[in-house]
């Protein structure tokens, strides 16, 4: 990944872009979602994207609640459907920057159909999928990305289902930009989100986030500091060539920009009708 020229964290004050009246926020201590949100806001700031022209569409779950804190045009829609709503909004208003914040359950389970077709269509928007391996909002049920053998309230004997690799899925479905990053490295994550925002077409970023209070506690993964450090071992940035064995995930996940294709944005492919006028037999 190219290293973007950094604006120092000191110059960027996230509070300038948040709805402070919506605080205190509802996230649990140690939740990774706040860091994902910070990376997004920082990337928006760096790219000089006006909050007036930003539309954030979120689904249901912990990630879905993030929109309320962003001082932009925010839409908290139905479970699994933010990509469908965002498709309509982006097509009706190509002048807006459309960002979708979704999550492993919202995007890969109930909303899986919308993800694959959004990847295929390539409507200009950025999809951030916050993956914390669990349905946190509803109390900790298994999700399509819960690692093998992990305990959740609906896998009392440990998870026996295979894990969905969202980035492989997105790439296979034709997404023109696919990336993955962890919340441990906010500046690196910010750079990836920034690239996704600038991409003309559908960009998909999986953000590995931690659910400390529910998933971490249930699986005795340690405190939030321990959990976030384990992200390092669970992932394989470009600079890490070797396989790192870790109990968090059996195989380290690659991070950074994982796929990129130059193909026309949805609107560029629209063609006028060739059919005859109304009537006729």
């Amino acid at each position: 990944m190219n290293i973007a020229p950094h604006i120092s964290a000191e110059q960027f004050d996230i509070r300038d872009f948040m709805r402070l009246e919506a605080f205190p926020h509802f996230l649990c201590p140690g939740c990774g979602h706040g860091m994902a949100l910070r990376a997004l806001m920082w990337a928006l700031y760096e790219n000089n994207i006006s909050m007036d022209d930003l539309a954030v569409v979120t689904g249901i779950g912990c990630s879905g609640r993030l929109g309320a804190y962003i001082d932009a045009n925010t839409f908290h829609v139905t479970h699994g459907r933010p990509l469908a709503f965002a498709t309509g909004l982006a097509l009706a208003r190509p002048d807006l920057h459309v960002v979708v914040i979704t999550s492993d359950g919202d995007c890969l389970a109930i909303g899986g159909n919308h993800l694959i077709h959004s990847c295929r269509r390539n409507v200009n928007m950025t999809c951030l999928m916050l993956n914390n391996e669990v349905y946190g909002m509803t109390g900790g049920q298994v999700s399509p990305t819960t690692s093998a053998t992990r305990y959740t309230t609906t896998t009392p004997g440990g998870n026996h289902e295979p894990v969905f690799d969202a980035c492989k899925l997105a790439e296979a479905a034709g997404a023109s930009f696919v990336g993955r990053e962890v919340t441990m490295q906010v500046p690196t994550l910010k750079d990836l989100v920034s690239e996704a925002l600038l991409h003309d077409g559908f960009s998909f970023v999986e953000i590995i986030s931690d659910c400390t209070e529910i998933f971490g506690r249930k699986n005795q993964l340690g405190d939030s500091a321990e959990m976030i450090l384990s992200q390092k071992a669970a992932t394989r940035p470009d600079s890490y060539g070797s396989k790192v064995d870790t109990p968090f995930r059996p195989n380290p996940l690659p991070t950074g920009v994982l796929a990129r294709a130059n193909r026309p944005e949805y609107r560029a492919n629209l063609v006028p009708a060739k059919q005859k006028e109304l009537g006729g037999g």
Binding site: A55, V57, N73, F75, V77, T78, R81, A84, F85, A86, T87, G88, L89, A90, L91, A92, R93, L96, N113, H114, I116, H117
Partner: peptide
Amino acid sequence: MEDEIASMGAVIGASFGG
């Protein structure tokens, strides 16, 4: 759209936009 649910969602999304 890919299904009936998505078409209803897209319609509401477009209406958000005006």
